[in-house]
Amino acid sequence: MSKKSFRQAINEALRQEMRRDPRVIVMGEDVAGGHGGTSGTVDAWGGVLGVTKGLLTEFGEDRVLDTPITEASYIGAAAGAAATGLRPVAELMFVDFVGCCLDQIMNQAAKFRYMFGGKARTPLVIRAMFGAGFNAAAQHSQALYPLFTHIPGLKVVVPSSPYEAKGLLIEAIRDDDPVIFLEHKVMYDDEEEVPDEAYTIPFGEANLTREGDDLTIVAFGRMVKLANEAADRLERQGISCTVIDPRTTSPLDTDTILDCVADTGRLVIVDESSPRCNMAADISALVAEYAFDALKGPIRRVMPPHTPVPFASVLENLYLPSVEKIEAAVKAAMGHRVPEIA
C-alpha cells in the first residue's frame, strides 16, 4: 500500500494484468511512446498523458502497439481481436474522438454477442479521457458516458479516485464484455492510498463515500470529489448527506440509489455530461417511477447548460458544476431559499 496517482494506478493495473495474462495487449495512439521519430528515443511518450509509459519496455512491441491516427481501424481491430482470442485494451485518447469510430463500438463490439445468439465473447476495454476543466474546448472536453450507457452490450465505468480506477480497470480487463473505461483528465495527478496487489471492484455496485440522513447526492467521476467537498461544508451547517458514487453507469446500481432516496427523501444528482438524456435525467426518471412516495421535495440536478464546452476559463467555470453549485442545490432541495449561483 502506498500513495499513488490516478495515472500510476491505471498504469499499475495494466502492468499487473499484462503480467498475469499474455492475451492482454495495449494499443492506441502513442501508447508505445511513439514510433518512427527521429530521436531514436524508445517509449518517449507513453500515451499523450504518459499513462502507458514503461509498458513497452516490459512487454515489447508485440503487446504494446502504437497505432496510426485512425480510430476506426484500430478500435475495430481491438473489437475483432477481442472476438478472436486476445484481451485488448485500446486507448481512444480523448473520448470526443469516438465520432471517428462509433460504428466499431456501437454496431460491432456491443452487438456481437446478442446478434450472434450468445456465441461471441468480446473482452475489450476502451480507455479514454473525458471531462472539462483544462480549457480543452468543445472537441476535447465532453463527458460522453451517457452516450455509451445508452447502448446495450456496453459496460461503462467512470472511476472517481485512484483506488477506484485500479480495481475497476482490472475488473474491466477480466470482464468478458466490451467495457468503456472513462478517465477524467483533470484527475490524473490525484493521489490516494492504493494497494500494491492486484484487486477488483465489481461492476454495478455503488460506493457510498459518506452516509447521511437528510439528503442523497448521486455524482459521477470527478463530481464525486466535488460532492464530497460540498457534503463536508453542508455537514458543518447541519445538513448531513449520503454521497453515492455509482462507479459504473452501465450496469447501474439502481437498488442502492432507490434505498438511499427511500432513507433520505431528497435527491441531488451531479452530472458533468450535457443535460439532455444524461445520467441525471435517467436517475430522475428512475426515482420518479419507483421512489416517488419517498420524495419530500423536487429532485435537483446540477449539470452544465445545453451548450458545447467553452474554451475561456471564465466560461468553462460557469459551465461546470462546482462545490458551490452543489451546496446551493442541496439547500434548495432542503427547502431553503438560496440565491442562484451563476
Partner: peptide
Amino acid sequence: GANGIVGGGPPLICGAALSHKT
C-alpha cells in the same frame, strides 16, 4: 459474421489477424 454495416468487416479483420499474429 456477416455485417450490416458497409465497411464493417475490414477493421475487425485487422483485429483477427492481430490475434493470429500475436
